[in-house]
């Protein structure tokens, strides 16, 4: 990978990576840190990373950097808590995107990650497995479970409204 490729990668994927981490962690500062650190890691490995696989590399490194930073800041426990069954409706939702964002934040971390990679980045089960270190079958199970929770959340909210 050349310096030009590296700079092009920033234009192509920095936004995507930022969105993935921001949506996953719900923390703007952390998302900024992760993007910076991930690109620093890529820079260190510039000679070893194939430009065709750079997106996968970025998301894998970014995901693990996010987990590391959350662990360091002792927020991992809080972050990993599933609130999937607490459907308190306290806010007024204007559109489905906002509602889904709320539902997403209540998913367990791993389900949220696989669904974000699937819906935002259009990754296959195999690619998601590479990023998260899961088997393809596990990825599938987490996606199905996550979808079910999202749908149930929407149903509950609609009933309350």
């Amino acid at each position: 990978m050349t310096v030009e490729d590296y700079n092009k990668t920033i234009d192509l994927y920095a936004d995507n990576l930022y969105r993935f981490i921001l949506k996953n962690s719900r923390n703007e500062e952390l998302a900024n840190d992760v993007v910076q650190e991930t690109f620093e890691k890529l820079w260190m490995k510039i000679e070893n990373v194939d430009s065709k696989k750079v997106k996968s590399y970025l998301f894998t490194a970014g995901y693990h950097t996010m987990l590391d930073l959350l662990k360091k800041e002792n927020r991992h426990a809080e972050f990993g808590i599933s609130e999937e069954y607490s459907y308190k409706h306290e806010e007024q939702y204007t559109d489905i995107g906002e509602l889904l964002g709320q539902a997403l934040s209540r998913l367990p971390e791993i389900q949220r990650t696989v669904i974000l990679l699937r819906d935002y980045e259009g990754y296959s089960y195999e690619e998601i497995g590479e990023v998260t270190g899961l088997k393809e079958s596990q990825v599938k199970v987490y996606i199905y479970r996550g979808r079910l929770h999202l749908k149930n959340y929407l149903v509950r909210i609609e009933n309350i409204i």
Binding site: G97, D119, K151
Partner: peptide, 13 residues
């Protein structure tokens, strides 16, 4: 409706 729609996010740095 339970599928996420990617919004526009810009990384400023």
């Amino acid at each position: 409706r339970a599928f996420l729609i990617p919004g526009k996010y810009k990384y400023g740095g």
